[in-house]
Write a protein that binds this DNA or RNA. Sequence first.
DNA 1: TATTGTTATACTCTATAACTATA
DNA 2: TATAGTTATAGAGTATAACAATA
Lengths: 185, 185
Amino acid sequence: MIFGVKSSGPSAGPPRGGSGAAFLVAQVGAHAASMFAERLAALGLSPPHAGILRALSGAPGISQRALGTMLGILPSRLVILLDELDERGLLERRDDPDDRRTYRLFVTDKGQESLEAIGRVARAHQVALCAALSDDERRTLADLLSRIADEQGLTPGVHPGFRKMGSAAPRTGPKGPRPRGAPRR
Amino acid sequence: MIFGVKSSGPSAGPPRGGSGAAFLVAQVGAHAASMFAERLAALGLSPPHAGILRALSGAPGISQRALGTMLGILPSRLVILLDELDERGLLERRDDPDDRRTYRLFVTDKGQESLEAIGRVARAHQVALCAALSDDERRTLADLLSRIADEQGLTPGVHPGFRKMGSAAPRTGPKGPRPRGAPRR
DNA sequence: TATTGTTATACTCTATAACTATA
DNA sequence: TATAGTTATAGAGTATAACAATA
């Protein structure tokens, strides 16, 4: 668990009744992300891998720098992810004749096949996730979420990740001594 | 970025057009989680802290074990989170006279105040997140997500966290030697 | 001097195992 | 022997700094 916050007092606020829309989006969203990651694992890929391949297929020849900026992945992490995709032969790093510092990234034929497999996985995932809804309702859901995403300034097709999630409460004092492995008494 | 997967070929599948409902839920959900965490940080709390206080207020006197099971938090992590809330005086660990191994957890008065502050933060968060929707639309969204959450077997009020997210592709070989800090050539 | 790709390092969160006290 | 709480430790993901090659 991570969240779990609904209306406190008897007052009536947005998150009344069971759970509010905001909490439900986060809850179902985390569930959806986990389920999708699990399906992707069957292909030997992680969500970041899939996002990179997809972005790359839409912007062939892009540099690592530009790709990282586009997807919000730090350079140091991107190197590792690209190495993994490179090792699998799903993408190619070609030299840039105009700037010997940079690479030009391309999806290989094998990478294209992976991309298609990812698409099939994504479709199966969506069907499973929205099993409780009719086609019309699923479209309504997508429309509402789409409008929120737009108004909130989210980049279409780019998952924001979970950068600023934990912490918020740095351990203060020296955590008073407490007998190891036992209740203090 | 993490995901980013839409329909691949020209075929028509669930995630056609812009993005599918499944991707949008994950995208907006991660955004909502980040925004909420940011607001909570102003109170010196993290999402897990808030979830613990809330769960505790609904089950006074519960043991750490039971709380961890309820929220899906591992015992080793729960100890740290409870220590932090304890240090802030938001909860109390009382001895259980019937079983000297366990504690009985209670929210303090100060913790109750925090809980109310968390409620206010949650309401403001929801209003901001759903600014693009009318009240009716927000209710529709909550209803649709609620039905998905129910059908998917999610526990009401419990955020599933992000346990099985990364990996799926363990580094294979010894990562061929490459000149340090420079392109290989 | 600035930039690209890379490595090193620290911090957090997740997960497992081991340990103490108690049952 | 089993269980509750605790600690230690390893593994990922995030983030920053530093580095070599090139601009």
